[in-house]
Design a protein around this nucleic acid. Structure first.
Lengths: 381, 381
DNA sequence: ATCCTGTTGGAGAGCGCTCTCCCGCCGACC
DNA sequence: GGTCGGCGGGAGAGCGCTCTCCAACAGGAT
C-alpha cells in the first residue's frame, strides 16, 4: 500500500490532482501528453504522480476510449461441427496433429474439466506456434499492447472468442488456424470485428492475412534437387485440403515439369513426423531407387530421413532430402536438413502490424501480405 | 450492425431495458442472475437481449466490479540486472536454454525492434511451457477468465508486468521463472499484488507456489535403478543454483546412500540436451564401466543416450537410463525413456486454482502445493 | 383493519477516466 | 486604449455498468 492515498483504494486521478493543486483534466493532459501544459505544472503533476504512486486505471480509460489495448491471439481448429465434405481435417502448415500414439506421452492429464487439453498439447507440440508468439509479442510489446491467449477448437469456444471481442475485451484478433475449413474467420468478419489470419483461408473470406509464397518455396527446393543432380525425385505432400499443402505441391510439380519431369511420385502426409515416415515407406515401395525427396514440411522430412536410415540409405549421398519451414526440427535433424525457410516471426509481426493498422484506420481496405521464402542449405541436400 | 440500436454504437444495457420495458437494474439482474426476478420479466429481458444483440461492455463492468477477469501468465527470466554471485544463470526445471548453435535455426529474426526474440524462442523450445499453458487455460476457461501472455526477461519488462497488474488489467499473475534469482516474484509481492509461482523460488519470498516433490522423484529413480540390479550408478544433475536441480540431486544421493552407495559420480548439466551429452562424456571418461544413469531431466537424458549410443553402449542393456519430467522428448527418445513424471498440466491448473482462491479471499494465508511425482517405466530402465 | 415481513422493481449514485466546452489571461495589432 | 486571437487551465458531462437504497405491494399474523 502506498502511503497517503485515501482509504484502502488505489490513488486516482482526483488524488493526484489534489496533491498537485490542479484539476483532473490537467493531470490527464500531462499523463497522456496531450496539448500544451506549463512546464512548471507538468513537473508538479509528475511529482504528485510519484508521491501518490498513481497508476491509471485501465478499465476506466477503456470505457471512454473504447479501446482495450489488447488483442486476442487465437489458435483455432476445426472443432466439433459436423464436417462438411472431406472428413480428413488435416492440420495446416506446420501445426502437427500429434496423432503420435507414444505411450505415456502427456496428452490430457487427469481431472481436467474441459477435456480440451489434447488440442492445446498438439498446438504446442509444434515449435511453429512459439515462433508466432515470438513475432507477435515482439511487435506488440513496444506498443503497449498485450496478447490474450485463446483457443477456439470447439464451436462453443469460437462463440466465446467472438463474444470476447464484442465485449471490447480485445480490439481485434490474430488468428492461427490449425485446420482447413476453420469457421472462425467467417464468424469474426460476419460480426464486423477486425482480425488478421496467418495463412490464406481454405475458402475465401474477406479478411486480411499473411502468407508465404509456398509455390516459390517449392520451386527453390525443386531447383536445388535438380542442381544437385538428382533425377529420380519424389515428394511427400501436405494434406491436399490445405492451401499450403496444395500450393507447395503445385509449385514443386510445376518446376519439375518445366525441367522435364512431368511425372513425380507423390505421397500425401499430414505434416507430422509419423505421416512423413509412412509416406516415405509407400514411396520406397514403388520407387526403391529414389535419389531426391522434397517433403512439404520439416517434420515429415525428419520422419522420412529416419525411414531412409533404417533402410540403410544415406542422406544425402543416396537420397537428398529437402524440408520446408526451417523449424527447429530441421536444424536438429541428423543430418541437418536443407529446407525452405518460412520467416514465421516476421510474418507474425506483420500480422500484428496489419491488425493495428486496421484498428487505427478502419476505413482502409483489407490488405494481405505474402512473404518470400528462402532456401537454407544444410547437409541433407 | 444490429438494427434498432442507437446511432452506430453497440447496444447498451439502457437499450435493452428500453426494449424490454424495464429498468437498467432489472436487466443487469437478469444477466448476472442475481436476486429473484419474475420469470415473465426474465423472458422479456432475454428476448430483448437477443433482439438487440446486446453484449455487456467489459470495461464498464470492470470499472465497477474492480475485476478484470483475466490473469497475467508471465514467463520470467533473470534478465539484464547485474548477476549477484553465480553467473551461471542456469535454466530451471524443464526450460531449455537452447544454447544450441545449429546454424540457421530461427533465433531472432531480422528487423525486430525489441530484440527479445531469443528469450521467447528459448521458452517455446521446451514443450514444458506448452504444458503449463494447457493446464492453466483448461482451468481458467470454464471460469470465464483469460490469460494474458507476458514476458519478463528484462527489468523494463518486469516493470511493465507490475504496472499492468497495478492498472487492474489483470487480477493477478501466474509466474513461470526460467531462471533462479528471478527478481519478479519479489517485485510483485512487494507491490501487494496476488501471484502464484511455478516452482519454489531460489530465495524465499512470501508468495504461494506449486512445486514437485523433487526429492521423492529422484528417490523413485534411484530405487528403480537399484532394483534393476545396477551397481555402478552415476547422475547428471541440474544446475546447482536451481532448487529443482539441488533437490533432485539431494534426493538421489540420499536414497543411494541409504542403500549403501555413499559416493555417486555427479556431472552438472544445464537441463539441455547438449549439456547432457557433454556431462555424459565427462562421466564416461572417469567411469567407463557405468551401468546406470539418472539424469535430472529428460533433455539431458536424451543427450546422454546419444553419447552412449555413439560409444556403442546399449540402453538399457549396458547402461540403464532414467530421466525426469516425462516430457515429450522422453516418449520419442530411442529407446523410450523411463522417467519421473512431473504432472505439469495438473500443477499449472493448481496454480490457477490457488490464484483464483486468493483473489476471492485475499485475507486467506498464502498457501503452496507440492505434487508427488510418479515413475513412468519405459524401455530405457 | 393494522402492522410487519418478505419480495421485487426502479431510481440514481457513483466507478475513474477522457474530452469538449468555456473562461481568463496575455500579447499583438489597429 | 480597444479588440481579438491564441494559449493554458478548470468545470463537468458522460462512457456503460453495478449495486445500494427505497418504494410498492402481497400475504400472513395480530
Amino acid at each position: 500500500m502506498t502511503e497517503d492515498s485515501r482509504a484502502a483504494g488505489a490513488p486516482t486521478l482526483e488524488d493526484v490532482a489534489k496533491a498537485a493543486g490542479v484539476s483532473r483534466a490537467t493531470v490527464s493532459r500531462v499523463i497522456n501528453g496531450v496539448r500544451n501544459v506549463d512546464p512548471v505544472i507538468q513537473a508538479a503533476v509528475r511529482d504528485a504522480v510519484a508521491v501518490t504512486g498513481y497508476t491509471p486505471n485501465r478499465a476506466a480509460r477503456s470505457l471512454v476510449t473504447r479501446k482495450a489495448d489488447s488483442v486476442a491471439l487465437v489458435v483455432s481448429g476445426a472443432g466439433d461441427d459436423p464436417p462438411p465434405v472431406a472428413a480428413t481435417a488435416g492440420p495446416t502448415a506446420s501445426a502437427a496433429s500429434a496423432a503420435s500414439g507414444s505411450s505415456g506421452s502427456s496428452g490430457e492429464s487427469a481431472g481436467f474439466e474441459g477435456g480440451a487439453g489434447s488440442f492445446m498439447t498438439e498446438v504446442f507440440a509444434d515449435p511453429f506456434f512459439g515462433r508466432v508468439v515470438t513475432g507477435v509479442v515482439n511487435f506488440l510489446r513496444p506498443r503497449g499492447i498485450h496478447p490474450v491467449l485463446m483457443f477456439a477448437e470447439t464451436s462453443r469456444a469460437r462463440d466465446e472468442v467472438v463474444s470476447y471481442l464484442r465485449q471490447g475485451s480485445a480490439d481485434g484478433a490474430l488468428v492461427v488456424s490449425t485446420h482447413a475449413e476453420d469457421p472462425l474467420p467467417a464468424l469474426i468478419t460476419d460480426a464486423g470485428l477486425p482480425a488478421v489470419l496467418y495463412a490464406r483461408p481454405a475458402r475465401p473470406v474477406r479478411i486480411s492475412y499473411v502468407d508465404l509464397a509456398h509455390q516459390d518455396g517449392a520451386r527453390l527446393a525443386a531447383e536445388r534437387l535438380l542442381a544437385r543432380g538428382c533425377r529420380r525425385i519424389a515428394t511427400i505432400a501436405g494434406p491436399f485440403d490445405v492451401p499450403a499443402g496444395q500450393d507447395r505441391l503445385a509449385g514443386f510439380r510445376d518446376t519439375m515439369a518445366r525441367h522435364g519431369h512431368p511425372y513425380i511420385p507423390v505421397a500425401e502426409g499430414e505434416f507430422t513426423e509419423e505421416s512423413g515416415a509412412s509416406a516415405m515407406e509407400r514411396l520406397l515401395a514403388e520407387h526403391p531407387d529414389l535419389d531426391g525427396l522434397f517433403a512439404a514440411n520439416d517434420l515429415m522430412a525428419v520422419g522420412a530421413c529416419q525411414v531412409l536410415r533404417e533402410r540403410g540409405m544415406r542422406v544425402p549421398d543416396d537420397v537428398a532430402v529437402i524440408g520446408f519451414d526451417d523449424s527447429r526440427a530441421a536444424a536438429s535433424c541428423r543430418p541437418p536438413l536443407t529446407t525452405v525457410r518460412q520467416p514465421v516471426e516476421d510474418m507474425a509481426a506483420e500480422m500484428a502490424r496489419l491488425l493495428l493498422d486496421r484498428l487505427s484506420r478502419p476505413d482502409r481496405p483489407v490488405t494481405s501480405v505474402i512473404f518470400e521464402p528462402t532456401l537454407i542449405v544444410r547437409a541433407s541436400a
